[in-house]
Design a protein around this nucleic acid. Structure first.
Length: 560
DNA sequence: TATAACAGCGCC
DNA sequence: AGGGCGCTGTTATA
């Protein structure tokens, strides 16, 4: 059963739909401070419906603030984005469906500061859009896969809101101590921290550049050249090649300067807030905004705080609450395994039997070492053409012909200006008009001069690398999303009277659950069960294994 | 003064 | 070396 919902200002309307998507009955309620409207939704939730609404983002945070979690939904905005771009179905409707991007509101919403829900599409429009999406689905190629993708995407919308509401446990004390250990005491008003000051003085001395600001790339490049070093850039990689006493302090400076600007005290003050928990005890929480399908491939993005780039240096500041543990789980070598399953490459599936697929490649005699195996595999996924990785490709192709053929085909499609589609049905965007008229398919129109034609070929190859990676990265994102959704459902039914286990973090192929200590064992089991379920949902009875690396820790720094 | 582009580097 | 990102400070441009 579905319940369609719409909102406008302080009015919230709902309608129950029958199996054909027709309205059975409907009602309305006022969005008021007393939470009565939440009780209405809670009452309907008893029937375990699939909620259908235009956009989860304006509504779900308010429900979470009121303590109401809903089991499942159909997020029309996310689902339309998939359907309207998928090559597995034919989306012809021209009806504009504008759900303006809602600006992320600062801080956790509460019932008290509930102003009005920004006006969305009317209930009639919601019902009509749902009907359109159902019709397109019914006529789609492989509708089961697309349905799964839409369900996973919608579950993701709920998870994203819950991740923000629950937050990531964060110790300001540990973070500050770590910053002081690495950077020294913070500088007063604009000055650099102790250790950075020392390093700047050393660098200036060694380069005979008393006024050098090493944060300035042009200044630094000039100073290095003036000191007789023939560098083209100030990149870490290039600096490492140099034989000069300034290299050591300079690399340390760059590393620490990066830590200071990206995740220093300013970051801590901006993104980690201390708030009382349900029992009134103050707890630090990091609450990034997750953006479902924020990346073209279907991966998530985040807004603010750089949540998907938490450097290892500071992960020890992610500390479980007293009486809790972090269950950290990541899918080992997810993308190569996804490729093996998609392509039905039995040899590669066998190589992946066991925890380490790269060791399997070595055992198959493809390469001599694990390091080479990794380079070869990533080269196949990313489209390396030269260097060590390019050299290893023929060997990979000989042993795993089907897997390599799949990515090669995706690359050729992209090079020719075509689009590719993931396992569940997310299609890559067409190349931009501007790029492609210049490329014109293969070598470019005859009226292009030699330089333009070379440029066109280069762009075609670039796009081929994108489509090559798209099918694998995108399908891996689908597996991860199904895993996440299944885990969410399992955590739901866990535990008894005590505090619940909550998802705390999601990073492409990794999840962190913040769990009360007595529940950790059950959470570990749930994580494994959900992974097995995801594999079955996508690939049925595949021979490819998707092992997890799971750690139960007190702080994130202890994982991996 | 505000914004865009670039270089560089963190994560997967 | 090769795919996908976000964020920062600096520099260039409007």
């Amino acid at each position: 059963m579905e319940v369609a919902v719409s909102w406008s200002g302080s009015a919230l309307r709902w309608a129950r739909l029958d199996a054909d998507g027709r309205v059975v009955d409907s009602g309305a309620t006022e969005v008021t401070d007393d939470g009565g409207w939440v009780a209405v939704l809670a009452g309907l939730e008893q029937q375990r419906p699939r909620w259908v609404w235009a956009d989860s983002r304006p509504l779900v945070p308010h429900l979470l603030a009121a303590g109401l979690r809903l089991r499942r939904c159909h997020d029309l905005r996310l689902c339309r984005a998939v359907l309207s771009r998928s090559e597995r179905c034919r989306w012809t409707d021209e009806t504009p469906w504008h759900t303006p991007d809602t600006p992320p509101d600062d801080g956790a919403p509460s019932l008290l500061d509930l102003p009005q829900l920004a006006t969305g599409p009317s209930l009639e429009e919601v019902v009509a859009e749902y009907a359109r999406q159902r019709a397109v689905l019914a006529a789609a190629d492989q509708p089961g896969r697309l349905r799964l993708l839409l369900a996973a995407e919608s579950a993701g919308a709920l998870v994203a809101a819950e991740l923000k509401a629950d937050g990531m446990p964060w110790s300001r004390e540990v973070h500050d101590a770590e910053l002081r250990r690495l950077l020294g005491a913070p500088g007063a008003f604009g000055a650099r921290p102790e250790r950075l000051e020392t390093l700047v003085a050393e660098i200036r001395e060694l380069l005979h550049a008393p006024r050098l600001n090493p944060d300035s790339q042009p200044e630094l490049l000039q100073a290095l050249r003036a000191a007789g070093l023939g560098v083209q850039s100030t990149r870490q990689h290039e600096l490492e090649q140099l034989d000069h006493p300034v290299v050591g302090p300079l690399l340390e400076f760059k590393k620490l300067a990066r830590l200071l600007t990206a995740n220093g005290w300013h970051w801590l003050d901006t993104w980690v807030h201390v708030e009382p928990d349900v029992t009134g005890v103050p707890r630090g929480r990091f609450r990034p905004d997750y953006v479902v399908a924020g990346v073209v491939t279907g991966r998530w993005a985040t807004n603010g705080g750089g949540a998907l780039q938490l450097p290892r240096q500071i992960r020890r500041a992610v500390v479980a609450d007293p009486g809790h543990r972090l269950v950290v789980a990541d899918a080992s070598q997810l993308e190569p395994r996804i490729l093996a399953a998609m392509s039905g490459d039995d040899a590669m599936a066998r190589a992946g039997a066991g925890a380490d697929l790269y060791a399997g490649l070595v055992a198959d005699g493809v390469v001599a070492s694990r390091a080479e195996a990794k380079v070869a595999m990533l080269g196949a996924l990313y489209g390396a053409t030269s260097g060590e990785s390019g050299r290893l490709m023929p060997r990979l192709q000989r042993v795993y012909p089907r897997a390599v053929a799949l990515v090669e085909q995706a690359a050729r499609t992209g090079e020719a200006g075509g689009r590719v589609t993931t396992w569940l049905g997310r299609s890559s965007p067409p190349p931009s008009e501007a790029d492609w008229t210049a490329v014109g398919g293969e070598v470019g129109p005859a009226d292009l001069d030699v330089a333009d034609r070379a440029d066109a070929r280069r762009r075609a190859r670039d796009w081929g690398r994108f489509t090559r990676n798209f099918v694998v990265q995108g399908t891996a994102a689908e597996w991860a999303l199904c895993w996440l959704a299944g885990l969410r459902t399992r955590l739901w039914s866990l535990g008894g009277d005590g505090p619940p286990a909550r998802l705390a973090y999601f990073l492409h192929d990794e999840v962190v659950v913040h769990a009360p200590e007595p529940l950790t064992e059950a959470v570990v089991a749930a994580v494994h069960d959900a992974a097995a379920e995801a594999t079955g949902l996508l690939f049925g009875a595949t021979a490819v294994e998707f092992p997890l690396q799971v750690a139960v820790v007190e702080h994130y720094g202890q994982a991996k």
